[in-house]
Simulated assay, not measured.
Amino acid sequence: MADRELDDGVAVGAAAELLGVTVRTLHHWDEIGLASPSVRTTSGYRRYTGADLQRLHRIVAYRGAGLGLDAIREVLDDATAEIGATLREQRSRLAERIHDLQQLDERLQRMTEAHERGILLSDDEQSATFGADWDPRGSGRARVVWGNSPQWAQFAERSASRTRAQWQSLSDTMSTLQRDLSDALDQGVAPGSPEANALVERHREVFSHFFPLTRQMQVCLGRMFDSDPGFSAHYDRIRAGLASWFRQIIDESARTHGIDPDTAIWQ
């Protein structure tokens, strides 16, 4: 742009194009007194002089560095302002923001992986945590079946923030419950008895660490524990007949809460 043209002043549209900002932005800066056109033509139009454009260029530069408009005003108008100190402070705030964004990115990564993998432990870690009989491919198969369900999403959301120590604690709690179920069967605890119902409630409480488990959903799990070859073999390895008895005590507990096990659905 020629010096003569700058001396005569530049219209707001041309100034906006020169600076790479919008006309609306220049109007806003004018309204708040940050940068205003200094001259007015005989026709009444306001125009930016060369000095005005120099100020605007500085505003754009500092805004690009992340300073707020109040900080920019101080840098430009306060003769006592230390620009270096202001920029160092901005860098400090930026470093904090970068740290927060890195943490957010890590949380998003874990959430993504949890939705895709389920349990965020290596195969060796899973075997060490859940026992030698544990199949690390199990959560992958579960995702194929349940991946579009709200329960899988809830499982993944909790898995994303769960540490190996927390998985170990949960595994130990589940193992203790399974031993207590086996002992109760050995002792002849009858389905529908207070002792059996207490074990069913413990199971629902422990399982709800994965996702909220309603009593109707628990009935559906009981059916699966008894009918699915993999689950029934797991429970029957703990104690012969445990899978069938476990289903029975779940069904009888459900009846005490007005639920017909024969018609219970996953809800």
Rank of each mutant, 00 (worst) to 15 (best):
N197V: 02
G118S: 02
V189N: 00
Y62N: 14
R204I: 05
A233K: 11
Q267W: 09
Q178V: 15
A79W: 03
R117Y: 01
I250P: 02
Y62D: 12
S169A: 15
D124A: 15
E82C: 12
A160N: 07
D260M: 02
G118Y: 00
F231S: 10
E89W: 09
S169V: 02
D262F: 07
R93W: 01
P229C: 03
G66R: 12
R202M: 08
Q166P: 12
D124M: 02
E201W: 01
F231K: 08
S208F: 00
V12M: 10
M1F: 12
A153D: 15
D183L: 13
R223W: 11
L213H: 02
G64E: 14
E106Y: 04
A233P: 06
P37Y: 10
Q216P: 00
F130K: 07
D228F: 13
R110Y: 05
T173R: 14
V206Y: 12
D262I: 01
I265R: 07
R88Y: 13
D8C: 07
S171T: 14
L34E: 05
P261V: 07
H115M: 12
T49C: 06
D183N: 12
Q151K: 13
I72C: 07
D52E: 14
I83F: 11
A254V: 01
G20W: 11
R93H: 08
D124W: 01
D100E: 03
P136Y: 04
A95Q: 09
S193V: 00
Y45M: 10
Q216S: 14
Q248D: 12
F210C: 00
G66P: 11
S171V: 08
S36N: 11
I59W: 12
V60D: 08
R247F: 06
E89A: 15
D7Y: 03
D52R: 07
H115P: 03
S92W: 08
F155Y: 05
R237M: 10
A65C: 15
T176D: 14
M174D: 08
Q154A: 15
T49A: 03
G84S: 15
I250S: 00
T22K: 03
D70N: 10
S159C: 06
F207R: 14
E125Q: 10
G20N: 05
L56M: 11
S127P: 06
L19W: 07
G140R: 09
E201A: 09
S232G: 00
R4C: 06
R143K: 14
W167M: 10
G138F: 14
L34D: 03
P261N: 02
R58Q: 15
A16Q: 04
W245H: 05
I32D: 12
I250H: 03
T42N: 13
D78F: 05
R107M: 04
V219H: 01
A79D: 12
A15Q: 03
E5P: 00
L181V: 02
H57C: 13
Q103I: 08
G44I: 04
Q166L: 11
